[in-house]
């Protein structure tokens, strides 16, 4: 038991991260409105919220359309269908100098929630109201909940995937590093156990790479709209997959050769450095925009890049999966070692 403490730590971290990824609520927000274009004068529209507690706090529900940093157009509640659906009406004045408006709603529970660029105003249609009516932009804060996942348009609940998808890649990198280390040691020492270790960790890295590709593909489909996108990170992922697969094809076809382990080690070292060149250097050189967070060109992610709440789950998830990956590698190595000594 004492000897296995690190395996227990890994298991606990993975269980903690998985449980928290599902248990904690997403911040309230607005998913969509039924129309995106308003005309001058009287308009009605309905709003689909998320965790928005329209019924629970119906008495304090209010909202406005933001024009600029000070001015706002008030909206009135017509009908609350349930906690996430409600209808509103708004009177758009004639002398409006902006065409794009943000929608803000608030109640005691959720505080201010908003949908950026919710409406465009078509100035050529409708009967303008006689009097221009503006109020001030005012934010309110809701109940304080200790941990919530940040609400992002298009991403919504799938932000929880961060704790599943990204640790797969981190684990793969750690295992690739391990594989490189053992390949170098094999070339310097000629001990067959190092070759087995390099092969085992590459095998487990391939498994995590595949899982990372599959989870990333599913996530990309529902956040960006495609199973595969042209993204600098995806190039790196594809090439590490191809190189790992080629490494095993090489091992298989060199099975009966006396210097099989040496060839495999040379190829492994070569492929590691090429993968690193592709992942680390190329995106910076070619200036390719990435949809992934941490790079520019993705406003949807920028606001939570350093969210401290998210880190509380994300770092343990990474650590837990890395430890689990090393554990799986250890099992794989022990089996291939047994196989080697038996035959």
């Amino acid at each position: 038991m004492v000897k296995n403490w690190w395996k227990i730590v890994g298991a606990v971290l993975v269980i903690y991260a998985t449980a928290f990824s599902f248990l904690r609520p997403l911040e309230p927000g607005i998913i969509q409105t039924d129309k995106t274009e308003l005309i001058l004068g009287q308009n009605t529209f309905s709003v689909t919220g998320y965790n928005s507690h329209f019924v629970d706090c119906s008495s304090s529900l209010k909202g406005f359309l933001r024009v600029d940093s000070v001015r706002a157009i008030p909206i009135t509640v017509l009908y609350i269908k349930d906690n996430v659906h409600a209808e509103f009406s708004v009177n758009i004045p004639a002398n409006l100098d902006r065409t794009v408006l943000d929608l803000f709603l608030s109640n005691d529970r959720t505080g201010s929630i908003f949908l950026p660029a919710a409406f465009r105003v078509d100035q050529s249609k409708g009967n303008p109201a006689a009097l221009a009516e503006y109020t001030n932009v005012a934010f309110s804060s809701g109940e304080d909940i200790s941990f919530e996942f940040p609400f992002q348009l298009r991403i919504f609940d799938t932000i929880r995937n961060l704790n599943f998808h990204v640790p797969m890649w981190f684990t793969m990198f750690v295992l690739l590093g391990l594989s490189l280390w053992y390949s170098i040691r094999y070339l310097n020492s000629d001990k067959i156990e190092y070759d087995l270790k390099a092969a085992s960790s590459a095998k487990v890295a391939l498994i995590f790479c595949t899982l990372g590709l599959i989870t990333g593909s599913i996530w990309a489909r529902f956040a960006w709209g495609d199973w595969w996108t042209t993204d600098a990170k995806l190039n790196g992922a594809a090439v590490s997959f191809l190189l790992l697969a080629a490494y095993f094809i090489l091992r298989k076809s060199a099975e009966d050769k006396p210097n099989k382990a040496k060839i495999a080690a040379v190829y492994n070292i070569l492929s590691f450095f090429m993968t690193m060149a592709l992942i680390m250097v190329l995106p910076r050189l070619t200036g390719a925009a990435s949809l992934h967070p941490g790079e520019d060109g993705n406003p949807a992610f920028s606001s939570y890049d350093l969210d401290s709440n998210l880190r509380m789950v994300f770092y343990p998830a990474c650590a837990g999966w890395i430890i689990t990956g090393i554990w799986i590698y250890n099992l794989h190595y022990r089996i291939s070692n047994l196989k080697n000594t038996q035959s």
Binding site: S21, I155, F156, D157, T158, R160, N161, F164, T210, T215
Partner: peptide
């Protein structure tokens, strides 16, 4: 309901793998 099923699909695919 906020794409929660996508998260489940992702978690299930990791478990399956």
């Amino acid at each position: 309901s906020g794409k929660i099923k996508v998260v489940i699909a992702v978690a299930v695919s990791i478990a399956t793998g």
